[in-house]
Simulated assay, not measured.
Amino acid sequence: MPTPTIREINIEDNPHVAKCVRDVLIEFGVPKVGTAYEDASLDCMYETYNHPKMVYLVLEENSQIIGSAGIAKLDNHNGNICELQKMYFAPEARGRGLGTKMIAKCLEYAKDFGFEACYLETMPYMDAARALYAKNGFEIIDKPLGNTGHYSCTVYMLKNLKN
């Protein structure tokens, strides 16, 4: 089996990323409102992240997108904090250590961009995701930071990047 590749998104990846993310959200029964499912940017991720201090990465295996995640400044927040955004993996990508590799790559970009901390939001019943984030140094915080528009996501986590 070939080793999956983590690389920056290309414009041709847009429909494949949108499908992968939406399929995972449906699989987990995530509400279609107040989550990434309804984000207009989901259909144009290349264009959305093709700006300074932003990156969106895809996990590719056998010419298929099987996961993705991005880094961007946290919306509606004054601090120097980025957000780990739209990290979703298809079933065939899970349990293989690829999530840890993706997080490491995203945080490498975040540090290079000069961010001091990384924030994320997730769902309370996404146990494996919460465990993965905790294993990678994210800690649960009491309330949301900024305003991502994802009001259905009720677990907030933060990782200090200044170490």
Results as ranks from 00 to 15, higher is better:
Asn76Glu: 13
Glu60Lys: 01
Glu108Val: 03
Leu42Lys: 13
Tyr88Leu: 08
His150Arg: 14
Lys111Cys: 11
Thr3Val: 00
Gly146Val: 09
Ser68Gly: 15
Val17Gln: 04
Ala18Arg: 03
Gly137Arg: 12
Met157Tyr: 09
Val30Ser: 09
Ser41Ala: 14
Pro4Met: 04
Met123Leu: 09
Leu145Val: 13
Ile11Met: 11
Asn10Glu: 11
Glu108Trp: 13
Gly70Trp: 08
Met45Ile: 12
Met157Ala: 10
Leu25Arg: 00
Ala104Asp: 12
Arg96Tyr: 08
Gly95Phe: 00
Gly146Asn: 09
Lys111Leu: 08
Tyr151Thr: 01
Ile81Thr: 13
Glu47Met: 01
Glu83Ser: 09
Phe115Met: 06
Leu74Asn: 09
Pro91Gly: 02
Asp43Ala: 06
Arg7Pro: 09
Thr48Cys: 05
Pro52Tyr: 12
Tyr109Ala: 10
Val33Pro: 00
Phe115Ala: 07
Asn50Lys: 15
Asn160Glu: 13
Cys20His: 11
Arg94Cys: 04
Asn62Asp: 15
Asn76Asp: 13
Ala93Ile: 06
Phe115Cys: 04
Tyr125Gly: 01
Ala117Gln: 11
Met1Leu: 06
Val30Tyr: 08
Leu98Arg: 05
Tyr46Lys: 10
Val21Met: 02
Gly149Lys: 03
Phe115Arg: 05
Leu120Trp: 07
Ala90Glu: 05
Lys135Asn: 05
His150Leu: 15
Glu12Thr: 13
Gly29Tyr: 14
Gly146Tyr: 11
Gly97Pro: 07
Leu120Thr: 05
Ser68Met: 08
Gly79His: 02
Gly146Asp: 08
Phe115Asp: 07
Met45Cys: 10
Asn136Ser: 00
Cys20Trp: 06
Cys106Gly: 05
Gly34Gln: 01
Cys20Gln: 14
Ala36Val: 00
Pro124Cys: 06
Pro124Val: 04
Cys44Thr: 13
Lys105Asp: 03
Glu83Met: 08
Ile141Cys: 02
Tyr88Cys: 09
Lys159Tyr: 11
Arg130Asn: 10
